[in-house]
Simulated scan of single mutants.
Amino acid sequence: MSAPQRPVILNQLGPELGKALEEHPSRPVVIQDSVPAEPWKIAPEADILVTGGFASWKQAPRDWRFPERLKWVQSQTTGIEIYPPTLLRDRVMTCGRGLNALPIAEFVFAAILRSEKRLDETRARSEADWRRHDIGRVYGKTLGLIGYGSLGQAIARRALAFDMNVMVNRRTPWEGDGGIVAAGIDEIFAAADHLVIAAPLTAETEGLIDRKLLGAAKPGLHLINISRGGLVDQQALVAALVAGDIGSATLDVTTPEPLPDGHPLYTLPNVFISPHISWAGGDQDQAFQQRLMKNLDAYLKGEELEALVDPVRGY
């Protein structure tokens, strides 16, 4: 990959990041276009695009093409399904893979502990509430993971620290290690007490969690989705929750986002919905800036970039 002596960068992520880019030793020309209404309208002189998962990307015209001069796109997000398909085919793209793994892993365990320890139900508000409650435990329980990238690995490490059994399904063939068992999705649904969806949304994984899998789940299963709502057949999920095929669900992602008022998932007592915030609470902005600068250095030297998106796999 050839790089210009003084790169031209279109920055769509705000003036603070733009200032940091301007201070890079290569003295890039930085074009600011913060929170663009039409992010696909890229200055033809730009060599690099720094962007995020703006909902407005969905409005890009079907026949649109990236400018010829644009060689590299750095996305702040991990998931890239929101971007036009031509982006993967025509340009080098890097993403935010792994940058949010730690806060999301913490969120997952907050959800697991909330479920097992029944924190909402056992809080004492009066003298009458001082009575025995039946609450659960985490040690000895089985955690299932659908997806085992940086996020799945961060969750698994914490599960092992809690003395949980860990079962993992991933796309790449793998034998398991360190007390982690590789298994098929159906095996995981049949055995897991808590099951986390941590896989990317692609054409192959859309609707992966369907009526059949939900119907074969271990009784009382707690399903946690912190990936993308599209991996779950949401209608089937509602039916499984109502029928008792699974015990409960923690959903940080849904389809669509936000869910419209009156959606049945809002009304089910065994569903906890958060507004796609499991990634929050960390130092993601700083981590992203560090990755961007590291990748910019590599780009200018013609070296391999970090967190490359595979155009075949789509993540």
Results as ranks from 00 to 15, higher is better:
37 A>Q: 12
219 P>H: 09
208 L>C: 03
148 Y>F: 10
43 A>P: 00
315 Y>L: 08
156 A>G: 10
273 I>C: 10
281 G>F: 11
85 P>N: 10
262 G>D: 02
200 P>L: 03
32 Q>G: 08
81 E>S: 10
90 D>L: 06
11 N>Q: 12
277 I>D: 10
265 L>H: 05
88 L>N: 11
294 K>D: 15
165 N>I: 07
293 M>A: 13
141 K>D: 03
303 E>A: 14
230 G>Q: 06
303 E>Y: 04
84 P>V: 09
206 E>T: 14
81 E>P: 04
1 M>N: 12
159 A>Q: 02
291 R>F: 05
256 P>M: 03
7 P>W: 05
204 E>R: 11
306 E>Q: 11
8 V>T: 15
125 R>Y: 15
312 V>M: 07
129 D>R: 05
249 A>D: 09
157 R>N: 14
133 H>F: 14
3 A>I: 07
176 G>W: 01
13 L>M: 15
164 M>S: 02
62 R>N: 11
106 E>K: 03
158 R>T: 09
70 L>C: 13
154 A>E: 07
282 G>P: 12
236 A>K: 06
18 G>C: 04
310 D>G: 12
35 V>A: 12
103 P>S: 03
86 T>Y: 08
151 L>D: 03
66 F>N: 10
122 T>M: 03
244 G>V: 04
87 L>T: 15
29 V>D: 09
260 P>C: 02
179 G>I: 11
109 F>R: 00
259 L>G: 03
33 D>Q: 14
223 L>W: 04
6 R>F: 05
160 L>S: 10
221 L>M: 04
269 P>A: 08
260 P>D: 04
230 G>R: 04
50 V>W: 00
285 D>P: 07
184 G>Q: 15
220 G>P: 06
24 H>D: 11
309 V>C: 09
268 L>M: 03
57 W>L: 04
300 L>T: 13
192 A>P: 02
58 K>P: 00
218 K>V: 06
46 A>W: 00
262 G>I: 02
185 I>H: 01
124 A>C: 15
55 A>D: 11
139 Y>E: 14
10 L>F: 12
174 W>D: 08
156 A>I: 09
25 P>N: 10
249 A>K: 06
75 S>H: 13
275 P>H: 07
110 A>E: 04
229 G>D: 02
1 M>W: 09
213 L>S: 06
146 I>E: 00
250 T>R: 04
305 L>I: 03
262 G>A: 04
61 P>A: 13
201 L>M: 06
288 F>S: 09
63 D>F: 10
153 Q>W: 05
144 G>Q: 01
170 R>A: 06
61 P>G: 12
91 R>F: 10
164 M>V: 04
102 L>I: 15
155 I>C: 07
214 L>K: 05
74 Q>G: 12
287 A>L: 15
17 L>R: 09
47 D>M: 05
52 G>N: 04
165 N>T: 12
289 Q>G: 14
109 F>V: 00
147 G>N: 00
63 D>Q: 14
